[in-house]
C-alpha cells in the first residue's frame, strides 16, 4: 500500500470510528447541557446496546461471520435491530434517570455524578454475571462489498455507518432546533428555573434528553458490534471515555461540537494506530483531553449554554 493510500485508508477508518464516537458523545453532551451532569452510566448503556443488537440479530438467525440474508430482507432485519436497540437503550436511560438520578435532583456537588459511576458498575457487572465475562462474536451480516480507491477501500458497511450517523445526527439537530420539545430543551439548558416558571415540564425535558442520548448510545453500540465483530461487558469504558473526550473537545453541551469532536477523536485514533502505535492511542487521546480542559475548557466550539456556577 502506498503511503497515500495508507493515509486515505486510515482517514476512511477514522471517519467511520469517529461517526460512532460522535453518536456516543451526543448523549454526554445532551445530558450535560441540560443538567450539568457527567453521566458515567452512558458508557454501559452503549455496551448494553451492543448486547441488545446482538440478541435481536440472533433472533433472526444471524450469528457468526456468515452472510445469510441479502437485499431487502437484510436491510429489514438491520432496521428492526436498530430500532429495537435504540428504543431499549432509550428506555434504559429513562429508567436510570427516574430511579437513580431524579431523587438526587437539586442536590449540589458531584453526588449525582458519583451515582452514575455506581450505576455504570451495576450495569457492566450485571451483564458480566448474566452473559458471562468472555468476549462474544458479534454477527457480521453485511456483505463485504467495497469501493476501491487505489489500494484503499471503503466498504459498504462504512457507507452505512456514515449515512446512519448523518441521519441520526441531522434528526437530532432538527428536533432540538425546530420542535417545541427541542425548544423546551434549549430553554432548560439555559436556565432550568426560568424554564420551569415559563411552564416547561422540566421532568419531561430531562427524560427526553436521557431517552435521546441513550438511544443514540444504543445505535453506537450496534455500530461498534458490526465494526469490530465482537462485544463484551467491558467495551463501554474505553469507548465511552473516548467519546466523552470528543464531547469535551467539541465543547460539552454543544451538539455540533460533539459531532466534530467525535470525528476528530476517530481520526486521531486511526492515525495514531497507524503511525505511532495503537497501544499509545489512549495516551494521546487522554493527554489531549487534559490539554483541552486545561487550555480551553470551553472546547473548540465553546459551550452554548452558560455554565451555571
Amino acid at each position: 500500500m502506498s503511503p497515500f493510500d495508507l493515509l486515505l485508508q486510515q482517514f476512511v477508518n477514522g471517519l467511520s470510528l469517529g461517526a460512532m464516537y460522535a453518536l456516543l458523545a451526543l448523549g454526554f453532551t445532551i445530558v450535560y447541557g441540560i443538567m450539568e451532569l457527567i453521566n458515567f452510566s452512558h458508557f454501559n448503556v452503549f455496551m448494553i446496546g451492543s448486547f441488545v443488537a446482538m440478541g435481536v440479530l440472533s433472533l433472526f438467525g444471524l450469528s457468526g461471520q456468515t452472510v445469510l440474508l441479502h437485499g431487502f430482507p437484510l436491510v429489514g432485519v438491520l432496521v428492526v435491530a436498530l430500532v429495537v436497540t435504540m428504543v431499549a437503550c432509550g428506555m434504559l436511560g429513562v429508567g436510570i434517570e427516574r430511579l437513580a438520578l431524579r431523587p438526587l435532583r437539586g442536590v449540589q456537588g458531584p453526588m449525582a455524578m458519583i451515582t452514575t459511576i455506581g450505576v455504570s458498575y451495576v450495569l457492566s457487572n450485571a451483564v458480566m454475571l448474566t452473559m458471562g465475562a468472555n468476549t462474544k462474536n458479534f454477527p457480521n451480516p453485511i456483505p463485504s462489498v467495497a469501493l476501491h480507491i487505489g489500494t484503499a477501500q471503503i466498504t459498504v458497511f462504512q457507507f452505512i455507518i456514515w449515512a446512519l450517523s448523518a441521519v441520526l445526527m441531522g434528526g437530532l439537530y432538527l428536533f432540538v432546533q425546530r420542535s417545541k420539545l427541542g425548544k423546551a430543551m434549549r430553554a432548560t439548558a439555559q436556565d432550568p428555573d426560568a424554564a420551569l416558571m415559563m411552564g416547561v415540564d422540566v421532568n419531561r425535558v430531562i427524560m427526553t434528553a436521557f431517552f435521546l442520548g441513550s438511544a443514540l448510545a444504543g445505535a453506537a453500540g450496534f455500530i461498534f458490534g458490526l465494526y469490530y465483530n465482537f462485544t463484551n461487558f467491558g467495551i463501554g469504558f474505553t469507548a465511552g471515555l473516548r467519546a466523552f473526550t470528543a464531547a469535551v473537545l467539541g465543547g460539552i453541551g454543544n451538539i455540533p461540537g460533539a459531532m466534530i469532536g467525535g470525528l476528530l477523536i476517530g481520526l486521531i485514533e486511526a492515525m495514531a494506530g497507524q503511525y505511532i502505535g495503537a497501544k499509545w492511542a489512549d495516551v494521546i487521546i487522554f493527554s489531549l483531553l487534559v490539554l483541552v480542559l486545561v487550555c480551553r475548557p470551553a472546547g473548540l466550539l465553546g459551550r452554548l449554554a452558560p455554565t451555571k456556577s
Binding site: 450539568e36 451532569l37 471515555l241 475548557p297
Partner: peptide, 22 residues
C-alpha cells in the same frame, strides 16, 4: 489543572489515572 471546576477536574484526573497504567 486544579483551577478547573469540580466535574472538569474529575475528568482530568480520570484521564491522568488512565494514562499512568497505560
Amino acid at each position: 489543572t486544579l483551577r478547573l471546576r469540580g466535574d472538569y477536574l474529575a475528568i482530568v484526573t480520570l484521564g491522568f489515572g488512565e494514562i499512568v497504567p497505560i
